[in-house]
Design a binder for these strands. Sequence first.
RNA 1: GCCCGAGUGGCGGAAUGGUAUACGCAACAGACUUAAAAUCUGUGACCUGUAAAGGUGUGUGGGUUCGAGUCCCACCUCGGGCACCA
Length: 870
Amino acid sequence: MIDGDVESLNVVGFTLMATNCKDYDFLEIEPHWQSFWEQTKAFRADNKSSLPKYYVLDMFPYPSGAGLHIGHPEGYTATDILARYKRARGFNVLHPIGWDAFGLPAEQHAVKTGTHPASNTQNNIVNFRRQIKALGFSYDWDREVDTTDPKYFRWTQWIFLQLFKKGLAYVDERPVWWCPELKTVLANEEVIDGKSEVGGFPVERRNLRQWVLRITAYAEQLLEGLKGVDWPDSTKRMQEAWIGRSEGAEVLFKLENPALGDLKIFTTRPDTLFGCTYMVIAPEHPLVDSLTVPAQRDAVKAYRFKAASKSDLERTDLAKDKSGVFSGSYAINPINHEHVPIWIADYVLMGYGTGAIMAVPAHDERDHEFAVQYQLPIIRVIQAADNDEKLPYTGDGNVVNSPGYDGLSWPEAKKRISADLTARHIGKATINYKLRDWLFSRQRYWGEPFPIVWVSETDYRRAAALRKDLPTSPVTFVEHGVTQFALPVPDVSLPLVLPDVKSYLPSGNGESPLANETAWLEIWFNVETGAAVPATQAQPAGEAWLRARRETNTMPQWAGSCWYYLRYLDPRNATAIASDEALKYWDVPDLYVGGAEHAVLHLLYARFWHKVLFDLGIVPQSEPFKKLFHQGIILGEDGVKMSKSRGNVANPDDVISAYGADSLRMYLMFLGPLEAMKPWNPKGIEGVHRFLRKVWRECLNEEGALNPRISAEATLTADTSKLLHETIKKVGDDIEGMRFNTAISQMMILVNALQKEPALPRTALSDLLRLLAPFAPHLAEELWARLGESGSVMTAGWPSFDPAKLVAISMKIVIQVNGKHRGDINVPVDLTESQLVELASAEPRVIPHLAGKAIKKTIYVKGRLINILV
RNA sequence: GCCCGAGUGGCGGAAUGGUAUACGCAACAGACUUAAAAUCUGUGACCUGUAAAGGUGUGUGGGUUCGAGUCCCACCUCGGGCACCA
């Protein structure tokens, strides 16, 4: 439907029209109201509004062929309740959905069937959309995004170009899984026990040309930014551990052979420098060859070969046994001029620090294990406070055996030694991170193509003269001895779409299927317009035309999901990722709900991109997700993770046809705390379904007409009236605190009480339906209309409670004697403590416990309990 | 190994340091019905006791407190994350 058509629907007439079913026929009611919401565009969010805004975001799904998993509606129901609640509270709510639709399964499907992954993806999206709409979620469907839509990924490519121009993207050789039999690169999940998932062929590590993003440049900011966000502590800690900041020092060790220069090491414990008895360098360290003496050459060569053939996984699997080989060379400890042997061992990683360490076996467990195995000396330099003689000792203590520093506490010694090394120009305090740069390319078809072409050095110079937007230092890669230069396509030529290919199989030489599309690949390229013609044709006339080869890598699935929350703000904008006004008005999501499995990667990558966009002045804030919440996993009936092979999968479609979407929504929320892991119980849904039917019967009689107990003049009994106000308060508080299970319990308690009322005021039911509407919106709409209320229940606002009604005239006081429960009494609220003690002491159950004893002390907790100590 | 989180009826779970087991499921008994379904009412931790009542109970053992499921210490079990990070 096109904007503006809404008027012609005669919205008012439609609104008042409920179904006329006699009993709770959810199969008729739910589609009816879904189509009402859709046709009236009831959930459209306006980018201009005087209302306060509320942006609530779901992690958008990957539209798999299996359809919606029961875990999807769990989180989606939670955010939908909040969205509907906030609307009722007068907020302009943005609640969008979309599809994270690039990815491996669609590509594998294409390889198998030969059909374009786009068509399979679209089929899956149609199915997902149908399922999500059947749940009655209040998404603004005008803002739907699809990461595989060129109008969307145009901006994914554009953001990549901003990173590229800022010097945050580069090309390097990186190891990937390679299957010689299949002649293809495999993803981690396609490798099972060292064999390919398809066919079970052996796989190996092989270096291939990859795009890498310099996320390490943002390590400090990514760490710093965590302090200000409202996230689960465990997630923050995981990101902190992933970034892995550690403070220490780089120290230069001179080598015995001065011609070889210095060996630079990183240590977090410069205070233990006197305890260094040997050095270790990684097998990949550039100095390995020159440090290896002739007598050790064969042993080192064999060791290096063994280490190289090990995957990262194997290297860490073998973590228990230390292995290594002596190089034959020595380094000189700069602080005491001792000569220490240099070993080569794979427990030192080239990718961390400097790939070389000073080993202090007395105070490091790994060094100690290694030293024991190879009989290397061990020197204690930290004395344990309790004189613990056991080594290795990694606790606190004072420095010993360190002339000039003895007696200092280790942090003090660390400071002093670092300073002394700095002064002598043989070391300096440094910070290291575990965080690695982000491998950002895949040798696949179904991903965003890189908006990059490769040209010769001469052509790059010509391009640089015509273009002002190239990075300060060019990105290059040496292939077959020739240096290639990466040239970005002009922004105006985006999107760079995927060409159709004859086969979705990889090229066979480690490149994506795109490498086989010669006409697309080898081109004459216009550096100013981005236009291209196949290189087989004659070179077009003009300065701007260069000979180029397109980049054949595509981007990983993360790319599209790194910024989708921004696109929702202004999804049809053709000139920017979103307008400045939209970015300012909606700001970042007020709440982001999704699985904890994304605690590190997605959330870290998206934060990285956001910070880059912030530095470029494109977004107005430095963190994308203010508040984050993880929903727990829903397990199968057997208490085990749902999986097809176990046959314990619950299908939302089946549940909807048996009980309705409202029951499913209610049950998912009633199951337990949203963040908890909980088993699915098909019987349990009966309970919430009965509750909804009970609500129906409170409103309507068996003929579907108004329940005769309802009238405008009726009043509730005092207790139920108080309960109604308590419920209004509690449901609101619980929704804000995301405690949906207890909100539902409270509504059940209220309805149980209403059932016992002789007469029902219409206002009480109107309040109840407004409380229920975020949870069971279809039923609430239907009953709202049939109760004769005007408009949609969603526009009726949130009911308010009267604090005065919450105050009781009498109170129940629990009596304790010596902390033990001995009954309770109902007393007026204005009773004093001494009056209360007097009354309590006279209670038949209490008397025997006080008999013959003097009251020593009484403790009165106002309105709750009196504890008498004897 | 290290870092988190969690252990409460037959089950899912509830409980600002203040009546442990709300709400729901399952079960049992009863009402309505020719019958069933639906609906309604009631029962429900353990030990002693006819009962009234008393005692014991939130993974185990200690502690703080007038009072602990809740706070502190140690341990056990389960779940999640990380894993030679110098």
